[in-house]
Nucleic acid binder design. Structure first.
Lengths: 189, 189
DNA sequence: TACAGTAGAGAACGATGGTTCTCTCCGCAA
DNA sequence: TTGCGGAGAGAACCATCGTTCTCTACTGTA
């Protein structure tokens, strides 16, 4: 039998695939059981409720997001390039099969109004990202205001790419970010 | 009794309020009946299904959005100011009680994967907005690429404002849009 | 007054979902 | 070999939901 750790991972990964592809409420716990290969009894031993499982899925997505952003930044030389690397990371993600937007935004729209825990998880993730960008912006010697502007481009790119399937969205966002960074540089040399 | 037109309006407005505040799937048709004051039998005479009602709600939201954007632009003198007026419109909206993000983005995240009709309605709305901005950008004599960048800022502002409740989001987006327009102007005088 | 038609209230129906319970089976200790 | 603890399969349970149906009451008309 799978040990507790492996079973938990399997359930969270399965739930993530299903929730992301179809939406949380469209997926029954029985579908999670089938996808994960873990009995309902075991799932409810690992998670108190479906809401708990959703929170765990969002925690997994946060780790994946942080890793992806960090990996993209690792190849970049300057703080400025590390900021722009976010959009290269997005570009690759948008082209993946089954891309359906940001799981946090989707979950917030679906459940944020009825589940404070899920709303908090989404808020925490978005605030952490904003903090990450703010750190890079300061490293680059630019004013703090630029950070929120870059974040808005990244968020807008995610929803627009999800809805339109336009493959040029990430590039357009990157171009806009470059222009914003350049504009800020001329004002704070 | 309400005539057909009035009953339809009442049901759509009630459904809009409830769906927007709580999410579509969290609201039962009986709650719509209670809020609208129209019997279930009548509702199902006006709409074939709940999905139909959701599509009608999105059509209402599209009209409201178009009206709001047009009204904001009406006060503006130049094409450039009409573009920036979008962000003033957003700023006022974000400060309204009960603001919970873009209903289209929320509906897409919740139901886009399972309802092609809803996904299409969302896509149509977003494409129309992009077309509107593109028209203004061309009037201003700027390159087409700026339009998508402005759209990304507007979309990002909506999701970020919904999640964080930060009241400075629309202003930051407006500032970014100004910088992008200025940058494009220096390159195409 | 009697009647036909219509509308509303809400019960009913069939499906589905989250959660729990039962039953059976397996591995292992004595 | 016997008995026990735990695990899985899936039935069961209760609530909810979308949708339809029934019954009652009222309106306008002859």
């Amino acid at each position: 039998m799978l040990d507790e750790h492996a079973a938990r991972d399997s359930v969270v990964a399965a739930a993530d695939r299903l929730f992301y592809a179809r939406g949380v409420q469209a997926v029954g716990m029985d579908a999670v059981r089938a996808e994960a290969g873990v009995s309902l009894k075991r799932i409810y031993g690992l998670f108190q409720s479906k809401e708990d499982l959703v929170v765990a899925v969002l925690a997994l997505r946060t780790r994946q997001w942080d890793d992806g952003v960090a990996a993209a930044a690792a190849d970049a030389g300057s703080p400025r390039e590390r900021i722009l690397a976010v959009f290269d990371f997005l570009d690759a993600w948008f082209r993946e099969d089954g891309f359906r937007g940001c799981a946090f935004i989707n979950s917030f729209g679906e459940l944020g109004a009825t589940s404070p825990r899920i709303a908090d998880a989404v808020r925490g993730h978005k605030e952490a990202f904003r903090g990450h960008v703010l750190g890079l912006v300061r490293e680059a010697g630019l004013p703090d205001t630029v950070a929120l502007q870059v974040v808005l481009l990244a968020e807008g790119a995610q929803t627009t790419a999800a809805i339109t399937h336009d493959t040029g969205v990430a590039r357009a966002a990157r171009g806009a970010a470059e222009a914003l960074l350049a504009a800020a540089e001329t004002r704070t040399p």
